[in-house]
């Protein structure tokens, strides 16, 4: 009897932990979306902030985040995919590949704020790109590299060797095999990784603090040399640095809602691609 009670208690412990984790997610989403809902409207996402940020919308922050994510992706994806191809397709296990893999794992563990410092030293100062969306995007690109490499390599690993043998046996070179068979077959997996990278980049704040993000810009410019507004930074400023902090709270909730929604949409697209691809296999 006592044993049974003990088991029941243990079971409750494990189930309770799991439920608590779910509850945390529920509370986060409930609090932000229930309070953000009233702030989010078409005007909110299509207009500039007005009256010292106490009114109006967040259009420039949305545009800035999208532009930033775009720059990050076009920079990180070719490099990351190329590196994953080298590791999985060309390289034989050696001291060099072990060092490369160790570097990638350690790069993945470096705090994002340190990437911010590195971006400041390298892009903003040494390369004279100034504080700009380009500097910030490149910084986030470096931060995303290990993630892209890892997800791409996983996708490449799932391609059976028989696919490679098919074209190699016909006298295709390794590059032709990669270009015509391996990468096309791995594309859904690679794409999933790319979209998840975009979602992470869209939510990052620390690396862009010193590399180009601004509290306010008047006017939208697609020029990569300009400072920019970004959703996460906008949320940070509205919730900690604004003078009329209570007055702008609904706007902060609205910004948080839009940011989380954007990130979730990207994640759902990635899940969908992965799901569809795996069921096809």
């Amino acid at each position: 009897m006592i044993k049974k009670i003990k088991y029941f208690f243990n079971w409750i412990l494990l189930l309770g932990s799991t439920l608590l984790v779910c509850l945390i997610l529920g509370v986060i989403l409930w609090d932000i979306f229930s309070k953000g809902r009233s702030a989010v409207s078409w005007d909110f996402i299509s207009q500039f902030p007005t009256n010292g940020m106490t009114k109006g919308g967040i259009l420039p922050a949305i545009v800035g985040t999208l532009l930033l994510t775009f720059i990050t992706t076009i920079f990180a994806v070719p490099f990351g995919v190329a590196c994953a191809i080298y590791l999985n397709e060309y390289a034989r296990p050696s001291v060099l590949t072990n060092i490369i893999r160790a570097s990638i794992r350690n790069l993945a563990g470096i705090p994002s704020i340190i990437y911010g410092l590195f971006g400041l030293a390298l892009f903003v100062q040494a390369l004279h790109l100034g504080t700009s969306v380009l500097s910030a995007g490149l910084t986030l690109g470096l931060l995303s590299l290990p993630y892209i490499i890892t997800t791409t390599e996983e996708a490449l690993k799932r391609i059976p060797n028989s696919m490679r043998e098919a074209t190699l046996a016909l006298g295709a070179t390794q590059f032709e095999t990669i270009k015509d068979v391996v990468v096309p077959k791995a594309l859904p997996g690679i794409l999933t990784g790319v979209i998840l990278t975009m979602s992470r980049a869209a939510g990052e704040t620390a690396p862009i603090l010193f590399t180009g993000v601004a509290f306010y810009i008047n006017g939208i410019s697609a020029s990569p040399n300009q400072e920019f507004m970004a959703l996460p930074y906008h949320l940070y400023m509205l919730s900690t640095q604004h003078q009329a902090i209570e007055q702008v709270r609904p706007l902060a909730y609205g910004t948080a809602s839009v940011l989380i929604l954007l990130v979730f949409i990207l994640n759902i697209i990635a899940f969908y691609i992965r799901f569809k691809h795996r069921t096809q296999e």
């Binding site: 986060i28 609090d31 932000i32 979602s199 949320l235 940070y236 919730s239 902060a252 948080a256 979730f264």
Partner: peptide
């Protein structure tokens, strides 16, 4: 069902978690 939920939790930007620290 649970595994995607955990991935969703991982996807929430840190700034949003910090915001909840202030308001909730």
């Amino acid at each position: 069902i649970l595994k995607p939920l955990i991935e969703m939790l991982a996807a929430i930007p840190s700034v949003a978690i910090g915001f909840l620290g202030i308001v909730l």
